[in-house]
């Protein structure tokens, strides 16, 4: 999994490429932690994410807990990922663009 960080003022956009699964979710956690001191708002661009497991979902929910649900945005979700998020019921409390 690759993450490209792009900081603009207090917003940090993380463009993720690859699968977010048990082995890679820690990388996402780390990337989020790294930008938190500077940024209060986090955008996860998931255009190139085909697969997400519960570990990845857990990272997203952890991030939401850290920055608050208003300051986390999920962008460019694929249909299958959207389906999984809907299944958990988290879709209601996440900003999905």
């Amino acid at each position: 999994m690759n993450i490209v960080k792009n900081i603009d003022a207090d917003t940090c956009t993380l463009s993720i490429e690859g699968d977010i699964d048990t082995t890679s979710s820690a990388l996402l956690d780390k990337a989020v932690e790294e930008c938190l001191p500077q940024c209060s708002r986090i955008v996860l661009d998931m255009k190139d994410v085909k697969y997400i497991s519960s570990a990845g979902l857990r990272s997203i929910i952890k991030t939401r807990k850290l920055v608050g649900s208003d300051n986390l945005v999920l962008r460019n979700l694929r249909n299958n990922i959207m389906e999984i998020i809907k299944m958990t019921g988290f879709a209601r409390s996440l900003n999905i663009e």
Binding site: S54, L57, R58, K62, I84, T88, G89
Partner: peptide, 20 residues
Amino acid sequence: IEDYDPDINIGGLGRFLTFE
């Protein structure tokens, strides 16, 4: 799922998804 906390229910979400 209503009571899910990422810091407490570390493995629970995966089982929930699987059986859904």
